[in-house]
């Protein structure tokens, strides 16, 4: 597929980088002239995926989170990946309110919010190898 523009970003899996990640993707999305509400939706979805990598994939330990963004026409494509422990059962992980960390007051709504705010989301994962979340959003529709 041909993209009008692309960018990649890699950063340490530490919580202070959550804001950096969502603001960077939002800045990339600006070339599609999104509404303020669309920017907020993109920022929220990115924040959820990056937080999942930090908390679940790397268990707040060492690791790198990778982001790739592309745009074509009015569509924004985002891939957020890690090389963490992977998800055992993706279907279960995506169920609303499901969390493996209730003691940390995790709401279990990360995937629900990503699904609500983006047009399409796909998750692939391999135990011990990592997880990739692919999201797509049409701007201005």
């Amino acid at each position: 597929m041909f993209y009008d523009n692309e960018m990649t970003l890699s950063f340490r899996a530490i919580s202070s980088n959550e804001a950096f990640a969502r603001v960077s993707v939002a800045a990339f999305a600006l070339q599609l002239d999104p509404a303020v509400s669309e920017i907020t939706e993109i920022k929220t979805a990115v924040s959820e995926a990056v937080t999942n990598s930090i908390i679940h994939a790397y268990d707040n330990g060492d690791g790198i989170v990778h982001i790739w963004c592309g745009c074509a026409g009015n569509k924004l494509y985002i891939e957020i990946s890690d090389n963490g422990k992977g998800i055992e059962n993706i279907e279960t992980a995506m169920e609303p309110l499901f969390t493996t960390k209730p003691e940390q007051e995790r709401s279990g709504l990360g995937f629900t919010i990503m699904q609500s705010f983006m047009n399409n989301i796909e998750v692939s994962s391999e135990l011990g190898r990592g997880t990739k979340v692919t999201m797509e959003k049409s701007i201005g529709e």
């Binding site: 929220t44 959820e48 937080t51 007051e105 709401s107 709504l109 990360g110 629900t112 919010i113």
Partner: peptide, 8 residues
């Protein structure tokens, strides 16, 4: 801005 961490 608030994500699901705020919900928690």
């Amino acid at each position: 801005f608030m994500d699901s961490a705020g919900i928690g």
